[in-house]
Design a binder for these strands. Structure first.
Lengths: 321, 321
DNA sequence: CTGTTAGCGCGTTCAT
DNA sequence: ATGAACGCGCTAACAG
């Protein structure tokens, strides 16, 4: 294995000179710096992370924390895209992605604690928006930097990346009411009252007001209640749902009751293959991969030149497809 | 931070004694070993991974490699459960899960190379069954241990975890033909010819023979061809599909054509929420979480006592739900 | 600007 | 059975 001593020897300099050259330390002549960097590149020298981390007292690793199972949305593909966005950005920074994932909250916390205490990981990404979360607490308490996906309710100073769900709600509703010419839309959400659902609904309600249509909302939990709701509202001729699953399930109930077909639907964050339904399904693309990338940007924003003010939040734009 | 020197000092022994005690080195008296371990536990001592890894020349990390986007099976949801199974098992072994994931094959390979060269990672899990794969080649070439999910076509000596797709195919078909009393089943698969699809189809065909029904297969690629297929086969009254997406899409086409409802369907690896369809959908559960756990077992089987022969493969049983 | 030296925390010789 | 000393690969403090 090629170490920094080898490079130093081949260059005829001391180890510390080589180290300085490779780390762009200013206290070295530009000439030898270039020379050594070129040599190292030619020889294919790669620094040993464990050694670097040991001296640095900090690992070049970002801990990515998944929600526990009971917290998980069905929107699995989302996570994969997120990971891709995160990792691509991390690779550029010579960082490694480590994952904390577990069934139980206790085990998850133990996982994160071990990453901090034994792994010397100092930066984390939480793939969920927490309310009051032991993981976030622990990180905050230890003054470790972390960014969450989705707006945290917990602490207003936490960093996070999110979509502009309000705007996306407005955009989606506008598309449904204007482009798709729906006159009696219904807004379908889960029973969880997620923040993003409320925001999208708010956008829907604003556009409904603007288009002079009655805002109508259905929480999709109990099937019987949903069926009753549909029976009470035979006028519905379009759906806006907080995700594909809610959309399709509600659509099924509608069709079951009225036989209506090819319903215009606008939903968010496409997670089903096209062709899975005969619904006229449009999705607001939230660009999970971009969200992942932005998360990393924010996570490392403390290393930016101070002139560019560090935002606390990055908002990813959406697009209707 | 609490180091091994602190523990040694508090115990009134030398650092090397403490080290031996904590690593269960036999060259130490049982008494002092117990004493030091108890002390360390009480003080909450946690060894520094970077230091351990540096001296060991090997990281306590397993690299988990995701397929590139174009390689991805439809079975996306699967991955999260796999990760959970893998990580739970890794935590027990004081190992860390690192991820390699990227859009392009080149970047992915660079990712893995860096994990090996700089990260000193020596064990990997590939979340896909490869045919001829640069990643697998690289790992093999460097004599690194790796396990794949799904049977590799590449090299018959590679370790892998898989379901018994043939048996699951038989089981699923039997359920469809016997329990659900379907007389004219169709087998729906993708156009990819994945190995697991072929095996499940083989199972289907065997049971078809046994039940004296005509085996019928439809590759779901071009919609028009599928529609034509359905028109040619109005007798179909049940579906067996290689996954939920194929199942639902084909079901939609059937209903579109004949209006038939509540079709009995057997598919694999439930990836859609219940209630998303009015189909009579049954799934063969493949236990992805168990697969993940088994992958780790196999990955570390070289550390097992030699008496218990190391298998090359672990097969996870299925269950119909 | 560069070389020498001393650690980072831990495992492991080599003595005793 | 235990301790002293060295080294893993690298960075940083201290000289010059």
């Amino acid at each position: 294995m090629l170490t920094i001593r080898d490079i130093a020897a081949k260059a005829g300099v001391s180890v510390s000179t080589a180290s300085r050259a490779l780390n762009n330390n200013p206290r070295i002549s530009v000439a030898t710096r270039k020379r050594i960097q070129a040599l190292a590149a030619a020889e294919g020298y790669r620094p040993n992370y464990n050694a670097k981390n040991l001296t640095a007292g900090e690992a070049n690793t970002v801990g990515v924390v998944f929600p526990t199972a009971d917290h998980t949305f069905p929107e699995n593909p989302f996570y994969i895209d997120l990971l891709r966005g995160i990792n691509t950005e991390l690779m550029e920074r010579q960082y490694v992605l480590s994952v904390a994932i577990s069934k139980t909250q206790d085990e998850l916390l133990a996982n994160v604690k071990s990453m901090v205490t034994q792994g010397k990981i100092k930066r984390f990404i939480l793939l969920y928006a927490h309310r009051t979360d032991p993981i976030a607490n622990f990180l905050r308490q230890n003054k470790l930097r972390f960014v969450t996906i989705g707006q945290p309710v917990d602490d207003p100073t936490d960093l996070f990346v999110d979509n502009d769900n309000l705007k996306a709600g407005i955009g989606g509703a506008s598309y449904l009411l204007d482009q798709l010419a729906v006159t009696h839309p219904v807004f379908v959400e889960s029973t969880h009252d997620w923040a993003y659902e409320q925001q999208r609904r708010e956008g829907y309600e604003r556009m409904a007001a603007q288009f002079n249509v009655e805002p109508l909302t259905c929480k999709l939990g109990d099937l019987e209640q949903a069926r009753a709701f549909i029976t009470r509202h035979p006028e519905i001729n379009g759906i806006m749902a907080t995700d594909d699953f809610n959309a399709i399930e509600f659509y099924r109930l509608i069709r079951e009751s009225s036989g209506a077909n090819h319903f215009p639907i606008v939903s968010f964050n496409r997670s089903l293959p096209v062709g899975l339904t005969d619904a006229n399904l449009h999705s607001v693309d939230l660009y999970p991969e971009k969200m992942g990338a932005a998360t990393v940007t924010l996570l490392f924003s403390d290393r930016q030149p101070l002139e560019s003010a560090t935002p606390r939040q990055i908002t990813i734009p959406y697009e209707i497809k």
